[in-house]
């Protein structure tokens, strides 16, 4: 349902709603002419650059990454190319490291709290902007700004706003009689600070998708409900929310997969610190490989592969859900 709205906004010339890219094949197969080997080769020819690209720039880096995690790479062996094979030793090191439980809990908190707030605020705003009022389209477009800014820009702005001594946030807190909060430098608040910034970053995405979802609920449903005397509150919980469920599920899943791999925001604001206070799995991996003067690629690759596994599990759920909705 979300991709059909692409056609609407993208003004497809024929206005037809195309199938979702996840599974456009069955429809085409049905229409197919007699199979000719010439056209098969033509198709392969057109796809060849992509296939080569995926092999060289996706499969090979991923393969290198697995290889990194199964060997004991040091800076020396990295250049010389003669690391010792250690099997799953690096994975064992990662799982037993002191940082592991912290990073795992932080990752869970960072992703779940972020997407919960992003979704709730995004849905509230989508409902608000659903009614057509003056300037609604302009204001909704302005909401996209945070999403389009380079992450380094928004993260460093947040870092300066949350600065202990000169930040505007503390200035407001103190104006209301609060005490100075060391947002980014205290282990108690560092994770909260990066979550706040990340929620802000994710609101536009949630707003736009959920708004597109709301547009697809036919107005007659609400008119009928209003005639039956349903209050706005009942309309929301009995109609909007259930009908929006497929869109919501996709938004939340994509939000999860996307938030899982966030490095920039946390790294720029706190570098995962102080200590490990705001360390997530992705940031940990980045820190091991590139964040210190001593690159340690093997454990970093092991953490990275663990992240891929988590993302894939949820990715499969995503694909499954899309398939089942297409059937229904």
């Amino acid at each position: 349902m979300t991709t059909t709205s692409v056609h609407r906004t993208g003004r497809a010339s024929d206005g037809a709603a195309g199938p979702r890219p996840a599974a456009p094949a069955p429809e085409r197969r049905a229409r197919k002419r007699a199979p000719g080997s010439a056209s098969t080769w033509t198709a392969i020819g057109f796809a060849a650059p992509l296939l080569a690209y995926l092999a060289v720039f996706y499969a090979y880096p991923l393969w290198r990454n697995i290889e990194l995690s199964l060997h004991d790479y040091t800076v020396r062996s990295f250049v010389l190319g003669d690391p010792a094979f250690v099997g799953f030793e690096k994975y064992a090191e990662v799982f037993t490291a002191n940082a592991f439980p912290t990073a795992l809990v932080n990752t869970a908190l960072f992703t779940l709290v972020s997407i919960a707030f992003q979704y709730a605020i995004g849905l509230g705003l989508a409902r608000f902007f659903h009614a057509n009022f003056r300037l609604s389209a302009v204001l909704r477009a302005l909401f996209l700004v945070p999403w389009l800014l380079p992450l380094i820009v928004s993260s460093s702005t947040w870092a300066w706003m949350l600065n202990s001594d000169h930040g505007i946030v503390n200035s407001v807190v103190q104006a209301f009689g609060g005490e100075q909060i060391n947002w980014l430098t205290s282990p108690d608040t560092a994770l909260t600070a990066v979550i706040i910034a990340n929620i802000w970053l994710g609101i536009p995405f949630n707003l736009v998708i959920l708004h597109a979802g709301l547009q697809q609920i036919p107005g007659e449903v609400y008119e009928a409900a209003a005639l039956d005397g349903a209050s706005p509150r009942q309309q929301f919980w009995r109609i909007t929310f259930p009908l929006l469920r497929p869109v919501s599920a996709i938004t939340l899943l994509l939000g999860f997969i996307y938030t899982l791999k966030v490095v920039d925001v946390i790294w720029i604001m706190t570098t995962g610190g102080p200590g490990n206070a705001s360390l997530t799995l992705a940031v940990w991996s980045y820190r091991e490989a590139f964040g210190t003067g001593q690159p340690d690629f093997s454990p970093a690759a092991a953490i990275g592969n663990l992240l891929i596994v988590i993302a894939l599990v949820f990715g499969f759920i995503h694909v499954r859900m899309q398939r089942s909705w297409e059937k229904s």
Binding site: Y58, R64, Y286, F290, G304, I308, L312
Partner: peptide
């Protein structure tokens, strides 16, 4: 292609670095 989009950038960065 759907799966490719789920791979964290940090993992790709390490792979590219090694290459």
């Amino acid at each position: 292609l759907l799966v490719a989009q789920m791979i964290p950038a940090v993992v790709m960065a390490m792979g590219f670095y090694a290459i």
